[in-house]
Design a protein around this nucleic acid. Structure first.
Ligand SMILES: [Zn+2]
Ligand SMILES: [Zn+2]
Ligand SMILES: [Zn+2]
Ligand SMILES: [Zn+2]
Lengths: 146, 146
DNA sequence: ATTTTAGATGAAAAAGATTCTCATTATCAT
DNA sequence: ATGATAATGAGAATCTTTTTCATCTAAAAT
């Protein structure tokens, strides 16, 4: 199977838990998944993989650049396959939907800011929070009913 | 005392724990403080204020717009007095130093991105991580010794 | 194919940050 | 001063993530 090779190419042993977690990330309709999400899917699929292993595997995948991790407010982290296209996130505070965006101007400004402050940039995290279009119309609905 | 009035103006009862926490935020040399930081300072000052109360008070202060809260990687949150000047943070991954910056271009782009995505913007969080100038020279020192 | 061995896993405990519970106490309008 | 209302302290609880350690397994060596 291709996943085994991908794991070895990344310098990781092709163990069953790693293959299964990678499959979940590839096949799930959710683009951004928390460790708990992955764990539950594996449980439902009858796989006997512990939550601690899911965390370990996801952390290793991050180290191997197979996935990226994003930390949102409230201590909730999500992982997604790394397709090499860096992006930031905009998410709905009502329903939890997560959208993505890329803004080259912001990216460049961040590099300039780091340089000006004398820092060697290693990472950055930009999250925009708001109410999505769906939740806005849902709120209007509720209003008209009252 | 002025702090009591400030608390009432913010719609909060002027209780002793609130006054003491506010004093710590005003007087500490640290501009960005975690709940634990505040708690330890109060302990050392001989105040009998529980950690749970510090958390509660800081959360209330945030609701009352007296302070702002920032969440950094690794589940570490810090509070600072709200002087009305919104800013973002750039921090050193080696020593933990926290610097601030404001970039109007980035701020505007974020508003545009939210609008374009159909979101009503409620908040955003931008943190830049890097190695500060001090830690860079420290690393060079270590190199030259080896 | 079997053995070997370094590395990986599962289960449960631990950790770290924050919130909740609830009996007790303090604030502030009357 | 008094009472209604809200706040506090201490510890338990929660939630996410990490660690421990005995057991197991992938891949290299025989
Ligand atoms: Zn929504
Ligand atoms: Zn994404
Ligand atoms: Zn530094
Ligand atoms: Zn700040």
């Amino acid at each position: 199977m291709a996943d085994s090779q991908e794991l070895r190419k990344a310098g990781l042993k092709a163990t069953l838990p790693r293959i299964k977690v990678l499959e979940v990330l590839e096949r799930s309709k959710l683009h951004h998944m928390g460790a708990e999400d992955v764990y539950k899917i594996l449980l439902n699929a009858g796989e006997d993989i512990g939550l601690a292993t899911v965390y370990r595997v996801l952390t290793q995948f991050e180290g191997a650049r197979l996935v990226t991790r994003s930390n949102f407010e409230g201590g909730h982290s999500v992982y997604e396959l790394n397709h090499g296209n860096h992006h930031d996130h905009i998410l709905c505070v009502k329903c939890g939907k997560v959208d993505e965006f890329v803004d080259d101007v912001i990216e460049k400004r961040q590099r300039d800011i780091a340089a000006k402050a004398g820092y060697i940039l290693t990472d950055h995290s930009l999250n925009i929070y708001g109410v999505c279009a769906d939740c806005q119309s849902a709120a209007e609905q509720a209003q008209s009913i009252l």
